[in-house]
């Protein structure tokens, strides 16, 4: 079975993000970029499925400018067999991404598509679900466990109430949650080999997809500064502050 993993290049999770002075966007100049943590988990899951013999080939896809090839090479160093770079300078919206991936899926015919549940820059959590709708495939999102048996994907989902188990007929779409696995490190011999693995470059036009912009970002602001706390000298003073400044309603017990 072939597995497609879609990955995104994002600001490194550990970076202290700064907002541009004109509040138009986040400042990306000379900032460390990495594989989106949930996408890393998706790549790891695909590799594990290949290691147990369920998958025969892993194709990793990413959409963006030339720089995303760095993340595709990292994914190949971790174990993906080949990469597809869909080149665009535009920041594609989730629906655009889903449409592009649909075209890839149509030509590659995988048995499984694994994606991160959301990216840590836009936090949309939409692509996996939209892809499933466009392809008409079943979806198992927020997966904390994935097993492939008899042409079905058994997915355990993390939901607010606990864990939910689904059985999906393949081909299917799975999105990863944090506890699915712990990604491995890229080892040097594999990093070197990855340089020679095949990387195909396509444009949205090649895939007959027109990237339409439906959403415009108006403003980006840093969260308001947390106010410094104060110390009070007595219980009466505390009650007074709670009532009159913090506006918390206090009721007598009993």
């Amino acid at each position: 079975m072939k597995i497609i993993v879609s990955v995104k290049r994002v600001i490194d999770y550990n970076v202290k993000v700064r907002v541009k002075t004109d509040n138009s966007d986040v400042d990306l100049t000379n900032v460390k970029m990495s594989l989106n943590p949930f996408c890393e988990i998706a790549v790891e899951e695909a590799i594990r499925l290949k290691e147990v013999g369920v998958a025969s080939e892993i194709v990793v896809v990413s959409i963006g400018p030339n720089a995303v090839q760095e993340q595709l090479r990292t994914a190949m160093a971790l174990g993906a067999d080949r990469a597809i770079h869909i080149e665009t300078e535009m920041q594609p919206e989730p629906l655009n991404v889903a449409k592009l991936l649909t075209k890839i899926v149509e030509s590659e015919e995988p048995g499984l598509v694994i994606l991160g549940k959301q990216s840590i820059d836009s936090d949309n959590n939409q692509v996996g679900q939209m892809l499933a709708a466009l392809t008409g495939w079943p979806q198992g999102t927020f997966a904390s466990e994935v097993k492939i048996e008899d042409g079905k994907a058994l997915v355990t989902r993390e939901v607010d109430g606990g864990l939910r188990s689904l059985s999906l007929t393949l081909p299917a779409v799975v999105t990863t949650d944090l506890r699915l696995n712990e990604p491995r490190y890229a080892k040097l011999p594999d990093i070197m080999k990855a340089k020679r693995k095949p990387m195909e470059v396509k444009t949205p036009a090649d895939l007959s997809v027109h990237l339409k912009k439906h959403i415009s970002q108006l403003k980006v602001e840093t969260p308001p500064q947390r106010q410094v706390g104060i110390k009070v000298d007595s219980v009466d003073a505390l009650i007074d502050k709670l009532k009159n400044e913090a506006k918390i309603i206090l009721r007598k017990l009993g």
């Binding site: 999770y13 990495s34 594989l35 490190y185 080892k187 040097l188 070197m192």
Partner: peptide, 16 residues
């Protein structure tokens, strides 16, 4: 690695 000064390595791909 090519000079055999190290026998194996992992490179961190993120700050995490």
């Amino acid at each position: 690695f090519e000079k055999e000064l190290l026998s194996d390595a992992v490179i961190a791909s993120s700050d995490a």
